[in-house]
């Protein structure tokens, strides 16, 4: 175990959040089984009193879990100087078998935590707890992932061996490697960027249509997910080669470093934030008819605008990078 401040913060934060999530899950089961707003029973009133506190604590936990993704990536990147062969987070994550599964899990938790925060915020807008069962069902779905994340985090940092010589991005994302990442790296850059531009343009048109008519949230949601997947693929396949001006270097982590202006964080944040906002706007569409959620359309509009701005930012940065890169691909 490396007693780096970030490692301690990640493990402590994760354990604390998981413990709260487990407690909240038992409460969620009671809510799902026993919630009855028409009843004035002692149990119902106790549930009403406690859900306010538990939702508030959970919202803090979810925000921490979402932001901890960036702390985790930053930690993996900064620890790379301690291990032979590691030059960026790619090498540190490859130190043992838990690194990359943990990263994927944290990405999934980021998206789900973001969606939970959107549902929770919407529920708090209604006077009669309109989405209470939905939000606690979602919480029950996230809890096992959070617990698994705590476990993987402990295993990953606990089993880091300083004497192990690790492989880094050059081989992990190279043409001879096997797995999802090298497969993504093999996607041709220019066609992928063209697809990404098409999807983001379609998303912007769909978003504008939604803002004008209030319809098409589901389509916008699907396009957000598609843009997220295309953007994630571009972060491995297309963008790195332009950022590093090296046609064979497909690492999505080196761009987190100072010499590349920490631009990776902006790409990641724009992509993840856009996906959460866009998908969230679509999910809320089915609750628009609930009487007490009169403020929902305004919130959906904010989410759609947020998603449009974030994906547009991602696209603009990507094309700025391609345009001004020293690399020219034909």
């Amino acid at each position: 175990m490396i007693l780096h401040p970030s490692v301690i913060a990640l493990i402590c934060g994760s354990l604390l959040t998981s413990a709260i999530m487990l407690y909240a899950s038992f409460f969620a089961l009671r809510i799902i089984r026993r919630w009855d707003l028409s009843s004035g029973s002692e149990l119902q009133l106790e549930l009403e009193h406690r859900t306010y506190l538990i939702s508030t604590i959970m919202a803090c936990g979810m925000v921490f879990q979402a932001l901890s993704l960036f702390l985790f990536i930053h930690t993996a990147d900064s620890l790379s100087t301690l291990f032979k062969g590691a030059m960026c987070a790619a090498g540190t994550l490859n130190l043992n078998m838990f690194g990359y599964p943990l990263l994927l899990l944290k990405l999934a938790i980021f998206l789900l935590a973001g969606l939970w925060l959107i549902v929770n915020h919407s529920d708090n807008r209604g006077y009669d707890y309109p989405l209470i069962r939905v939000k606690y069902l979602l919480l029950l779905g996230i809890t096992p992932l959070m617990v698994a994340e705590s476990l993987l985090l402990g295993l990953y940092f606990g089993l880091m061996k300083p004497h192990v010589i690790t492989s880094c991005c050059g081989s992990l994302f190279g043409t001879e490697a096997k797995g999802l990442a090298p497969a993504l790296a093999l996607i041709p850059e220019v066609p992928l960027l063209a697809v990404l531009a098409t999807v983001v343009t379609a998303l912007l048109i769909s978003g504008a249509g939604y803002l004008r008519s209030g319809r098409g949230a589901a389509l916008f949601s699907v396009l957000s997910l598609t843009a997220f997947l295309c953007g994630a693929a571009a972060l491995v396949s297309a963008l790195p080669v332009y950022i590093y001006a090296l046609p064979s270097h497909h690492c999505p982590f080196c761009m987190l470093q100072r010499e590349y202006g920490f631009s990776g964080y902006v790409y990641y944040a724009a992509l993840l934030g856009g996906a959460v906002s866009g998908i969230g706007a679509g999910i809320l569409q089915r609750f628009r008819r609930i009487g007490s959620l009169a403020s929902l359309p305004a919130f959906q509009r904010s989410l759609v605008i947020g998603a449009m701005l974030l994906f547009a930012l991602f696209m603009a940065l990507a094309f700025w990078q391609v345009w001004f890169s020293e690399l020219r691909l034909t």
Binding site: L37, G40, L45, E48, Y52, N124, Y127, D128, Y129
Partner: peptide, 8 residues
């Protein structure tokens, strides 16, 4: 009124 969340 008794079930209203605090802000309401």
């Amino acid at each position: 009124t008794t079930s209203l969340p605090e802000r309401f």
